[in-house]
Design a protein around this nucleic acid. Structure first.
Lengths: 128, 128
DNA sequence: CCTTGACCTTCCAGTGACTGGAACCCTTAT
DNA sequence: ATAAGGGTTCCAGTCACTGGAAGGTCAAGG
């Protein structure tokens, strides 16, 4: 399977797949012409990566997840711990964004948005 | 005022202030010894920047906001448009994170988190 | 006068996870 | 012979800093 074919099958851009090889997440063989040759397991791994990235796991977390996935003697507690930590990060980010959203929303509402220069948004930014 | 003093007054790290100078957000004068000399207006500008960054505005957006702030003939509509666009971005991000949060939360709940290898989290990632 | 310590300076490299582009090679069809 | 549509490598850029090295400046203390 060439990189274009596997890109189509996994939905990941070829560039990204090359990058994943560069950082050691996959190691396709090479054809005599230098082209990468992907195996079926690579499709699997790349889909796994795509899904994990969609859920916001970092590359390093993905690396750990794949290691756990391949370790048939893993403890599900280790996976859960990783996911819980990540969930915590996400919740923190959401809280932070919610704070921004509320403040901004108030400011936008308070601003007339006309041709006059008076602007509560700028006033707020200026007061610090 | 030296960079250390203004850093203390604005709460921004000296490194960040140097960076803001580098990208043209402020232009402090220099003393004969090469040290940066900050004016009172710089305290104001840096606090403005700090607040805007806290609200998630990008540096380029901050640049525009400062320009609007300094333009006494501005239309508040221009400021509002900028803020609304940014608010939209934030809401998009929140929605995306909420999706991750829900999926992850379900998976974490479903995972026993014990010593056995069976793990719904990995199963989900693998199914794609 | 010398040193110590706390400042200040510049410059370079790294962060995360790609993404764009240039320059070039391989294969197949026309 | 050439054109199209793959593939390859390598380099630079993204965003907003942050860390660190190497060195200059200044006031106080011995």
């Amino acid at each position: 399977m060439t990189i274009g074919e596997i890109a189509a099958q996994t939905g990941l851009p070829a560039k990204t797949i090359r990058y994943y090889e560069e950082i050691g997440l996959i190691t396709p063989r090479r054809d005599s012409n230098g082209y990468r040759v992907f195996a079926r397991t690579d499709v699997h791994t790349l889909r796994f990566l795509g899904r994990a990235r969609t859920l916001g796991f970092s590359i390093e977390e993905c690396r750990k997840l794949i290691a756990l996935y391949e370790d048939k003697g893993r403890a599900s507690g280790d996976v859960k711990a990783l996911a819980q930590e990540h969930l915590q990060d996400i919740e923190d980010k959401i809280r932070q964004l919610e704070e921004m959203r509320m403040t901004l929303s108030d400011l936008v509402t308070a601003c007339a948005g006309d041709n006059r220069p008076d602007c509560p948004i700028l006033t707020d930014l200026a007061k610090g």
